[in-house]
């Protein structure tokens, strides 16, 4: 699914609300039957940890941690044993073609590689929803296409992927597009 709209239309706010990072000023949001507006902070942290994976436009990797450390971090917050977490993180990085970049720091990687590390981090906990905010915005067109391909194959494996973008080309790859303008959904197909 893609959420498409010009800048200022409220795409990012919608994503933050969907990702339980922000709370709506009015309205209701139920995720798996849980009323998010009434959830405690720790519950929200747990939802973000287990049910949602974020991919940000600016990758948002921790600069002092290696690729594999970045990827395994969500598992550590879940209390998974370090050895197990490293194993899973390496698997995901392998899957995304970064098997030989595991111990590199983010600034030693290209933009496309950083984005793939970010995607690996987002999917390592097998979240129900993957939220991607302008995932191709900071990438050259080749890397951008690669990222979209990764999303497509993840989607085929049964992951829900919500891509937020102002780029029609990106949006058109989605099975479903929601158009957003001035904070309102005015069209979807």
């Amino acid at each position: 699914m893609a959420i498409l709209g010009p800048s200022g239309s409220g795409k990012s706010t919608l994503m933050n609300i969907l990702g339980c990072l922000d709370l709506p000023t009015s309205g209701q949001y139920y995720l798996d039957g849980l009323d998010i507006l009434k959830a405690k902070e720790n519950q929200l942290a747990e939802i973000r940890n287990k049910k949602i994976g974020f991919v940000f436009q600016k990758f948002n990797l921790l600069p002092r941690l290696t690729a594999v450390q970045n990827v395994m971090l969500p598992l550590l917050y879940r209390g998974v044993d370090e050895k197990e977490a490293i194993k899973l993180a390496k698997e995901k990085l392998d899957l995304l073609g970064l098997g030989d970049r595991c111990n590199h720091l983010p600034n030693e990687l290209s933009g496309g590689q950083q984005q793939r590390v970010a995607i690996a981090r987002a999917i390592i906990g097998n979240p129900n929803i993957l939220l991607a905010d302008e995932p191709t915005g900071n990438l050259d067109s080749k890397s951008g296409k690669d990222a979209i391909e990764i999303f497509k194959s993840l989607n085929k494996q049964g992951n829900t992927i919500i891509v937020i973008t102002h780029n029609n080309e990106v949006a058109e790859q989605a099975k479903k597009i929601i158009y957003l303008r001035d904070g309102k959904i005015y069209e979807h197909n």
């Binding site: 973000r48 940890n49 974020f54 948002n60 990797l61 969500p74 917050y77």
Partner: peptide, 15 residues
């Protein structure tokens, strides 16, 4: 910003 990232991937207050 890092703290924000940590929170987004599920760090709790006590973490």
């Amino acid at each position: 910003r890092e703290i924000g990232i940590l929170k987004a991937i599920g760090a709790k207050k006590k973490d």
